[in-house]
Amino acid sequence: MLAAAHAQDWEQLSTLEATREPLLRRQHPADAVSHAQLGEVLAYDRELQALVGQARDSVAQQWQRENGRAQAIAAYEQS
């Protein structure tokens, strides 16, 4: 999933998330190995959320620039 996020392959990331979700929600053993693996998954998830958040913010900024440009053009055309 991190590789897909780094590559900005959001479709692949979505597919992987759909596959991962039921695996995370099932019952897991309470042994130390499983606990450590869950900790790794959570650490990867935090990194993944940061990448997705950065991409979302970047797209939002781009949309605001484009929207502002369109408004300026419309205002110019009306004058």
Results as ranks from 00 to 15, higher is better:
L13W: 05
R26V: 12
L16F: 05
S79M: 14
H6Y: 11
R26F: 02
S14L: 09
Y44L: 07
L24W: 13
H28C: 06
Q12A: 13
Y76Q: 13
R69C: 01
A3C: 04
P22R: 08
L38M: 11
Q61P: 01
A32F: 04
Q12T: 12
D31F: 11
L23S: 05
L2V: 03
Q37K: 15
W10C: 03
L16S: 02
L2F: 01
R56W: 05
T19L: 06
Q62H: 10
Q64A: 08
R20G: 02
Y44G: 09
D31K: 05
W10K: 05
T15L: 08
A75V: 03
Q27R: 12
A70P: 00
Y76M: 06
A74D: 10
A55I: 02
E77P: 00
S34Q: 11
H28T: 02
A72Q: 12
E11M: 00
A5N: 03
Q8P: 00
R69A: 08
V52N: 09
R26T: 13
P29S: 15
A70V: 05
T15A: 12
G53F: 02
R20K: 14
L38Y: 14
A74I: 05
L16R: 11
A36W: 08
A18W: 06
S14A: 10
L2Q: 09
G53E: 12
V52R: 13
A18Y: 06
A75K: 15
E40H: 08
V41K: 07
Q27Y: 14
P29E: 15
H6A: 11
R65N: 08
Q78P: 00
A75D: 09
R65H: 13
G53W: 10
Q54P: 00
A75C: 02
E11K: 15
L24I: 11
V59G: 01
A75G: 04
A43L: 06
E11L: 04
A32R: 14
L38C: 01
Y76E: 07
Q8E: 15
I73M: 09
S14V: 00
A55N: 04
D45V: 00
L51I: 01
L13P: 01
G39Y: 08
R56F: 06
H28G: 01
P29D: 15
E47T: 04
A74M: 12
E77F: 03
A50W: 10
G68D: 15
L51S: 02
A72G: 03
V33A: 15
Q64L: 03
R46P: 00
R56G: 00
D31L: 10
Y76R: 15
V59I: 09
Q12H: 04
A18F: 05
S14R: 14
T15P: 00
G53N: 14
L38I: 14
W10G: 02
S79I: 12
S79D: 12
L42I: 06
Y76G: 00
A7E: 11
Q71L: 13
V52P: 01
V41I: 14
T15V: 09
Q54N: 03
A18M: 14
A50Q: 15
D57Q: 15
A75M: 10
E47S: 08
D9V: 02
R26E: 13
V33D: 09
V52G: 01
A3K: 13
A55W: 08
Q8W: 07
Q54D: 08
Q64Y: 03
W63E: 08
R46T: 04
Q64V: 02
L13A: 11
E21G: 06
A70M: 11
D31M: 08
D45Q: 14
Q12V: 04
D31S: 04
L38Q: 10
